[in-house]
Design a protein around this nucleic acid. Structure first.
Lengths: 188, 188
DNA sequence: CACACAAACGGACTATAGTCCTTTTAGGTC
DNA sequence: GACCTAAAAGGACTATAGTCCGTTTGTGTG
């Protein structure tokens, strides 16, 4: 008996999951994330609407699924990649490296991340990945600012990295100044 | 000829504006901001939907209109009230005072501000008030951190004061720690 | 007061997210 | 291979934001 086995995904479910992800990726690339409705994704994938929502929950969930791989790459690099992003460097250096790397990731998929964060209120804080970034930043902040209340401070700092906000900042000042501002804030 | 006169508001328009604001205030108070639809506001006010949207643009616009007075009070206090919120104190003190005062305002009307900022994407940065807070913070930052690139830095700092974000931070850590985190970030 | 016309009104209409519930099907069991 | 069950499918349905346009009304003018 395989007690902990999470019961394999049914064949039709797997097939449809792939069809949906492929269709969504294609439509988003061709028309832009905001201009594609969930109806359109379902139609393009050749599945019913119920199927789409059942599997991905909402539009944010679909975006998260599409970002999954890229997100994992960054998480891997932080956990076990080379310093200064990975372990081994001083906290301040790692924090600066994280900000740069996160901004690379974010600016590479701005529309998608934005949808994942804003599709429903509070969506950002419910995503599993957010907790990862938050933990990482809190630990580093404890290193760069000994004695500070790192957990809420990490939240406040990550606010500056919200897609909604970075979109506005980059539009107004360009990437270089936006990056510098976040780094300045992070390093005190 | 009164060239610059902005042509007085028509009597029926004024009457309806007041009816809508009163109805919205009542419904929001009774049922909570999120649970009230624009249809319900229109019905309660006894006006058509078209009238509601024509005048306030969207849900965010309605929220802004309701917040208008409180917002003005804070702006007045900053421009000409007593120090340290008003002029006369050192930049660092004024910045701390601004953070506290803004959080007072925000926490007093969290749902409404949140709606004004999140009803449509990018709404926050289109509100006139945002430009005011941004200018104020940028000027103070130039005082506390000579030589910094104050404009984007002010944006990054204000990100931590976004309603969406403060809601999450207060829920998780409570007001006191949330306040302290923002103040820490602001004062470097 | 009658008239003209810009402004405002209002509600039917569209678009879209998300839900519900009935029908279908995969895959294990005898 | 027939049968059973839980999972999955799918599309009609609901709720709501926001648009459009034909109709009404306030107000300044002769």
């Amino acid at each position: 008996m395989l007690l902990d086995e999470p019961r394999r995904e049914r064949a039709d479910a797997a097939r449809n999951r792939l069809k949906v992800l492929a269709a969504a990726a294609r439509l988003f690339r061709e028309k832009g994330v905001d201009a594609v409705s969930m109806d359109a994704v379902a139609a393009e994938a050749g599945v019913g609407k119920g199927t789409l929502f059942r599997r991905f929950g909402d539009k944010a969930g679909l975006a998260v699924a599409l970002l999954d791989e890229r997100e994992r790459e960054l998480q891997e690099a932080i956990l076990s990649g080379p310093a200064p992003l990975g372990p081994g460097a001083q906290a301040a250096e790692r924090l600066a490296a994280f900000v740069e790397a996160y901004l690379d990731y974010l600016l590479g998929h701005l529309d998608l991340v934005r949808m994942s964060e804003t599709a429903s209120p509070g969506a950002r804080y419910r995503i599993g990945a957010y907790r990862f970034w938050h933990r990482h930043v809190a630990i580093l902040l404890a290193g760069t600012r000994p004695g500070c209340d790192a957990d809420p401070l990490a939240h406040a700092l990550l606010a500056a990295l919200a897609a909604e906000h970075v979109t506005a900042m980059v539009a107004e000042y360009g990437e270089a100044r936006a990056r510098r501002a976040v780094r300045t804030l992070a390093l005190g």
